[in-house]
Amino acid sequence: MTDQSNEKLSPSEIAQIANTKAQGKRPQYFADPMDEHSFSMSMTLMAELAVARERIDTLERILVQKGVLQEGDVEGYVPDAQAGEERQQAQVEYSARMFRSLQQQVEAMAEKNSLSMHEMAQRLAQNE
């Protein structure tokens, strides 16, 4: 090894190299390429959720070790009325965000005479 000191890779360089595809054509498992992407993103989210849960578990265990929390504090936690309501509000908002595309399709199905942007573009070009 020479004594030439190597530059550290930047986070974006690491991401770029680590995310490189393997040589050769990747097998396709679904008829629709979009399904391929949706599935891969779901698997990655699955991994990242597992990582986040493990991190929360680490925090809880350290807090117990350090005496900040007692064993069972998290399990036994009962929110007071206001906290309970705030948390359920957050849950509702979260589910609503998750289902945005389905909910918007419901809106769309209820619309009458909804125009595509192509139609709208023609209409505006003709100055109504």
Partner: peptide, 15 residues
């Protein structure tokens, strides 16, 4: 996922 994770680990500590 395993390959990406492993590569990211070693690339940040290449030197």
């Amino acid at each position: 996922i395993r390959q990406q994770a492993g590569a990211a680990i070693v690339l940040r500590q290449l030197d």
